[in-house]
Design a protein around this nucleic acid. Structure first.
Lengths: 340, 340
DNA sequence: CTTGGCACTCGCACCGGTGGAGTGCCAAGC
DNA sequence: GCTTGGCACTCCACCGGTGCGAGTGCCAAG
């Protein structure tokens, strides 16, 4: 059974009302507040139909209706128009992000900005290593058998890793290693680094071979294990905005938010910048985050995304507003990083 | 009026009972559970005295007693013996921390460990820049007028900062700058760096002077503004363990935890390692963290602390257990960093 | 100073009644 | 055939009253 125009209109009204009032919405207020030109009785009929189709539900007999996840999904896909940000908001984003002095600063400003704009929990992933290129690799002598490996990417990320060698390393050796490794890798995409490292290893002079092997292992570890993906979080206090939303269930949400891997799964799966995804309630496969919705977008400097960012909130959230904020911030961050 | 031995014993019993049960404790159970060799009536008299002195209070007439902050303070100062960790716990700390590959790893493992041991919110400060020495400074060419300044300290911290020059910088100039700056600063305590930088600036050759000035400004900013102090947080989910503790007041706590400056104030004020501090309830001057208690300790490699760490929880917490966990972890982290 | 006894005070859980919001259904109207 | 007003029905949220139990303060005796 198809839903005619007016029924969709009713659903939209229900979602909008419920999102702003947080209370089950009845046929009467619906007829009053939204200028549907029909009587409450008619709306009741439509609501009954919408309920049959599973788009809305009532908490108990003789209460108003509440959208189901299916209802939100339809709303997001078909019924909502992305509400453009106000000029003031755009301005605020720009000025707030403009003062950043380095990548850490960019990410931390972004995540706080996003949390403030959406009044929800914001998550920002650092530019993914596997999608960045090497700008420079530095080896710093720390002890006879130890070097600190510092990897600097074109996106401004700086990763460090202590490397322990089974034998001592002279200053000259360290210098040669540094030169060799930079010649081989500087400018290369990290995703292709494994190949480069392999050839580098083969062409290494016999006396550098053992040291180079150790170094190569660490480099590969850093790149292959995704352990080095980083994220930053802000706005967890916003979870308490509506105690009603997480009835005693704040716990698992906070726990999930502490699991970097979980968050990465959530926001890291983006391909092109400006694309965005909305996960509603149970669509979210993470145990403990059922009952929350997630809006994510990719950001990047070119046509492929460097990483993702997004916000997390109650299923009952202002989707149009959140989506536009997330997209706008993603775009600005991309532009900002492209400037570097 | 002095409190005699038994009254103190009663107070100790009340604190212990209340901490484990979370319920106001009455004279009867007190007489039963703790082998005070007197009758409930006697205990009631003592309790009345303790209440007069402000050490305990009753939520309402005819409920049991609950320790006041003054009561907890007395308990912590005089009545509790630090309970040693079990060998299993020590072992766990050691093995958990042992696998760390770099400073980030050390800090993140430490903070998670602490949160898990104490079942509370844990905070760990990165080794303070002002208390570290320079190991190496690297300048990476990023554009004609931009260098990425990378500062590596003896504690393993790596700080980056983009430096924008008003004029273009040649490779040779960058090289000279790097050499000069490393010669001047390598091995120096960062706290004394300002002086070194000043002399460095004076002795710079005329053609390097402008570039060096820009660089010096950035370096000083990084050091002087304490903006570069970092902290890491874990275990916020533990705040929800007892909804009772933060009656609708979870909000301000989460908000305070997002303020780096606030947390720094809280845990950063340590002088010598192994010293610890306990702040109970209102003693804590941070608005929003009234009603929570904080246990902090310094950690370091020598006789002065590098930075602080600690945990935050409800005033009704297991002080002896928490204190010993915090101290033990601080000691292990100090040892671990000394090994680098 | 300690102890048993006792009256007293609250908080809390339980209960039944009431009001109101909102629904579903039906019969009439366009 | 869709829309509409009317109407009975359901169920929650609120309210005041009640009984119970825990715990206290006080007192008089040991």
């Amino acid at each position: 059974m198809a839903l005619d125009e007016r029924k969709l209109e009713v659903l939209r009204a229900i979602v909008q009302d419920y999102v702003s009032t947080h209370e089950p919405v009845g046929s009467k207020v619906l007829a009053e507040r939204h200028h549907l030109r029909v009587s409450p009785a008619t709306i009741r009929n439509d609501m009954a139909a919408l309920e049959d189709e599973g788009y809305i539900t009532q908490p108990h007999t003789s209460a108003g209706r509440v959208p189901t996840e299916k209802g939100y999904r339809l709303f997001v896909d078909k019924l909502s128009t992305i509400k453009p940000l106000s000029p003031a908001e755009r301005k605020a984003i720009q000025t707030f992000l403009a003062g950043a002095v380095d990548l850490d600063d960019v990410v931390s400003r972004t995540v706080r900005l996003l949390a403030q704009l959406t009044r929800q929990v914001a998550v920002v992933q650092y530019p993914s290593l596997t999608r960045s290129a090497v700008r420079h690799i530095e080896l710093v002598q720390v002890g006879a058998t130890r070097l600190l490996l510092v990897l600097i990417t074109d996106t401004g990320r700086v990763e460090q890793r202590m490397v322990e060698f089974p034998h001592s390393i002279s200053d000259e050796q360290a210098g040669s290693l540094r030169t060799a490794i930079n010649t081989a890798l500087a400018g290369e995409q990290l995703a292709e680094a494994p190949d480069q490292i392999a050839t580098l290893l083969e062409s290494a002079s016999p006396e550098l071979r053992p040291a180079m092997t150790t170094l190569a292992t660490v480099l590969l570890e850093t790149l292959v294990e995704k352990r080095e993906e980083r994220i930053m979080l802000a706005g967890t206090a916003n979870l308490t905005r509506s105690t009603i939303d997480f009835p005693g269930t704040l716990r698992p949400v906070l726990e999930a938010l502490e699991e970097q891997m979980v968050l990465l799964k959530l926001i890291g799966e983006v391909d092109s910048p400006s694309a965005f995804r909305v996960l509603i309630g149970d669509e979210n496969q993470v145990e403990g985050l059922r009952g929350t919705s997630v809006v994510t977008a990719g950001y990047g400097t070119g046509s492929t995304a460097l990483a993702g960012l997004g916000v997390l909130g109650p299923t009952r959230m202002d989707y149009p507003g959140t989506i536009s904020a997330v997209r706008a911030v993603a775009r600005y961050v991309g532009d900002l990083l492209a400037g570097n």
